[in-house]
């Protein structure tokens, strides 16, 4: 095997509304492309293996994990981070609800939680079922539904109870 070959590839992706072109390694994840090459550090690296949710971004509007997405696969796609949800610093209702309910402590999981909540509420609005309900009926906005849908985002500070309340508030806003 040729260890020395360079496998650099140029990608063009819309990040928080701005078209960005950047040279990445084929190995570069979307998360590392954002954090290490584009200076977009809103998505966080908590585990780098799809086990914590801190890197959650919206890819073409759906919540995904940037750490398991290879950057080369994102050309032409639209990436929204928590920073992009607050253009000009004007907070998204989910972000405002997180502030209002103190649904954060250290803040490291928070941008991922926020993106995940936005995606989850969109899924709920579109009638997507979850493990918390009966798949044969339409899901309802309950604390149990929110908790299940937000379970892909770990919070070591233990703010879950407040996160559920915040997401509920944002959904009813």
């Amino acid at each position: 095997m040729d260890h020395h070959r360079r496998v650099d590839t140029e990608i063009t992706t819309r990040v928080d509304g701005v078209t960005r072109t950047v040279l990445v390694d084929t190995r570069t994840t979307l998360l590392d492309a954002l954090r290490e090459r584009l200076g977009t550090t809103s998505p966080k690296k908590g585990c780098d293996h799809g086990q914590c949710g801190a890197c959650t971004v919206l890819l073409d509007g759906r919540r995904v994990l940037a750490c398991l997405t290879l950057a080369v696969t994102t050309t032409g796609k639209d990436v929204t981070t928590a920073d992009g949800l607050a253009p000009d610093g004007h907070l998204h209702p989910v972000q405002q609800a997180f502030l209002d309910n103190d649904a954060l402590q250290c803040g490291y999981c928070t941008p991922g939680q926020v993106c995940s909540a936005v995606g989850a509420l969109d899924e709920l609005a579109n009638g997507h079922p979850s493990h918390a309900g009966d798949v044969t009926t339409d899901p309802q906005l309950t604390r149990a539904e929110i908790a299940e849908r937000m379970s892909g985002n770990l919070c070591r500070c233990g703010t879950y109870t407040n996160i559920i309340t915040a997401v509920e508030q944002a959904a009813r806003a």
């Binding site: 799809g50 919540r63 997507h128 079922p129 979850s130 798949v135 849908r149």
Partner: peptide
């Protein structure tokens, strides 16, 4: 797959299995 009404009504075990796995983000990927 899990959101598809045909799957949910005609093959609920499949929808339930999918929804019991991983997380919302991973299921989107």
């Amino acid at each position: 797959i899990a959101a598809d009404h045909r799957v949910r009504t005609r093959y609920p075990a499949l929808a339930e299995a999918l929804l019991s796995g991983a997380s919302g983000q991973l299921r989107n990927m």
